[in-house]
Design a protein around this nucleic acid. Structure first.
Lengths: 340, 340
DNA sequence: AACAACTGTGCAAACGATTGCACATATATC
DNA sequence: GATATATGTGCAATCGTTTGCACAGTTGTT
């Protein structure tokens, strides 16, 4: 029987003895009220009996809506993203939408490709976890009135909705924790400044340290050009060999913190004995490192879920205004920070 | 201009001064040869100028093919799966196919739901990373002649294609390594026997140990009902408190090995000092644990990529026979195994 | 020179659902 | 009791592509 989803609305109609349009109206919750309850029952019964499933292609062709969302991420293999994606998919699924994913590896040409495929598939909207601060794609989407929500990273442009972590709060949580432990000279390994996350965390750090003006303190900030272990190692090694005095490092991300672990070990020092380290993200298994990493937990799943909700809102009520939302992170104290 | 992918085949045809069907034929590589080269050029030029993108919904409606594949996974948040997914998506994308994902959390009802949505979206085929050894869904798909490939886990049923790791080889790699280190009494924390992975590894262990018949040795095998840290802890604790003599544990998976780490610490013993431990999977960051985990690396990405290839083959040449393929894993020696 | 076989393109009918409009019947209004 | 309004359902067009068939023009065969 169930030959590759065969049964159509017409067959249901014939079996019930009504017109296909009636079946369509019954199956659409909005128009169901216009049909006699008895007919509604019969149609629903028969539709279930026959295992009717609407053909999305046909529906999409007619309505110009596919209930499909494109999701752009840098790389699903980066443990940061799976919980976000899971949140997005759960949020979309609950409302009858489906996601298609594109990995961009942070490469512009792959990003363009992915967007092209997604648009060919008539996605109803896009969720980007790949935004750079000056992302040209975003302007394009806004111009085409294609609903877009940024997640995890935001962009400088306004007029676009975004759901991101409150990075300034996160950094201030880390700094406050270190200060309570008696640390005064605190260094920062900053992420790429082209990404909102790297930038906001750096700005947050400077402002919380009251160091925005003090150039002297700014020597304790080293920028990296990727959120990677290698870059963290390089930056921390530089801090140490620079001869700067400091007793703690606030890393802009867990991977940078892991790099710092290495640099500290390489220098013959110990963490947290000589230098305390904090991360950012609370990736899986950082609680199993030695020492277990004190870090800032970001509500990744909720970020994704909220992005999905927001996008659906944008799609279904097209003139709802763009909003920038931040979610609150949490300090997770483990073993990589100690009293000075 | 680019108003939400508007331009249709008809507009292209009008601008060129030919019939829409001609444009369609030009755009389809298979039929392109039937059209005069000059016309082909003109159509292609105009199509590019106008930024024409075929409407997948219309195409799908007509051809009954969507170039969309459904991918069922237990949980994207489990670090095992992202590389598989990445491989699948790369493999599909290279051939013009797109994946839609469904997380099942190993819950049958969610699995049914996901399959229902996917079939409603008329997927051309399915890749399952969720198979149980006696999976009822598989029979259904085979009956409906819906192309399916199993990845990572396989099922007992035959007639279905699968791409999985060579688990027996993996286990024998681990056991041989331990034997070379002088271990003789080796225990096994087995995974769920309802999953092909758990089962194959256990069978492999018994056979490599030459213990298939020896009941005495079988006491050194403890089964768990999930590939989780908790279960690993429970199983290892049981082995230890049982008073069995053994100097090494071969865990059926990295998470189980992590649980074993805990149990060993809880018992006041040390790894690898008192007990060596091996894992299976080589999850991210197990090289950063203390001790760094000796484990079996599975070519996850290739597993996914190969599954995508196989599925496309199945779709495009429908009568190609079902094949079960295994890929070779690799032993990664780190710090959790030592001489006895 | 007549006929057969190709070639390149147009024509029109699908695919399955949605939806504005029309129409018959039932109910409300005066 | 006649007219106006509601109500429930049918009719048919439409969304954008693909594709079997038809047909005119060309080339090949004898």
């Amino acid at each position: 029987m169930s030959n590759r989803s065969r049964v159509t609305i017409r067959e249901v109609a014939e079996r019930v003895g009504v017109h296909p349009s009636t079946v369509s109206r019954v199956l659409n919750p909005v128009t169901r009220g216009r049909i006699t309850p008895e007919v509604v029952d019969k149609v629903i019964t028969v539709a279930n009996e026959l295992g009717y499933r609407p053909n999305q292609a046909a529906r999409g062709l007619r309505t110009n809506r596919t209930s499909t969302i494109g999701v752009l991420i840098p790389d699903i293999t980066n443990p940061l993203f799976p919980p976000i994606i899971r949140g997005i998919e759960d949020g979309l699924g609950a409302n009858g939408y489906t996601a298609i994913l594109g990995n961009t590896d942070n490469i512009v040409s792959r990003e363009m490709d992915a967007v092209a495929t997604m648009r060919a598939r008539q996605v109803d909207g896009l969720i980007l976890a790949t935004a750079r601060r000056d992302d040209p794609l975003i302007a394009e989407f806004l111009k085409d009135r294609l609903p877009v929500v940024l997640v995890n990273r935001t962009a400088d442009a306004d007029g676009v909705s975004s759901i991101v972590n409150d990075d300034v709060l996160g950094i201030s949580l880390a700094v406050r924790h270190l200060k309570e432990l008696g640390h005064r000279r605190i260094a920062h390994i900053a992420g790429p400044q082209t990404l909102s996350t790297g930038n906001a965390r750096r700005e947050g750090f400077l402002s919380v340290m009251g160091a925005k003006e003090l150039l002297s303190e700014q020597k304790l900030v080293v920028e990296t050009n990727a959120f990677s272990e290698d870059e963290g190692l390089r930056a921390a090694a530089q801090l140490i060999s620079d001869g700067q005095e400091f007793t703690a490092i606030v890393a802009a991300n867990d991977l940078l913190a892991l790099g710092a672990y290495e640099a500290i070990a390489d220098a013959g020092l110990s963490c947290p004995g000589d230098i305390s380290v904090t991360g950012f993200n609370d990736m899986p298994f950082v609680d199993r490192l030695s020492p277990p990493l004190t870090t800032i937990r970001i509500p990744h799943y909720e970020l994704g879920r909220e992005a999905a909700r927001r996008l659906i809102e944008l799609i279904e009520t097209p003139d709802s205004p763009a909003r920038a939302t931040t979610l609150r992170p949490e300090l997770i104290v483990r073993g990589s920070t100690a009293e000075v």
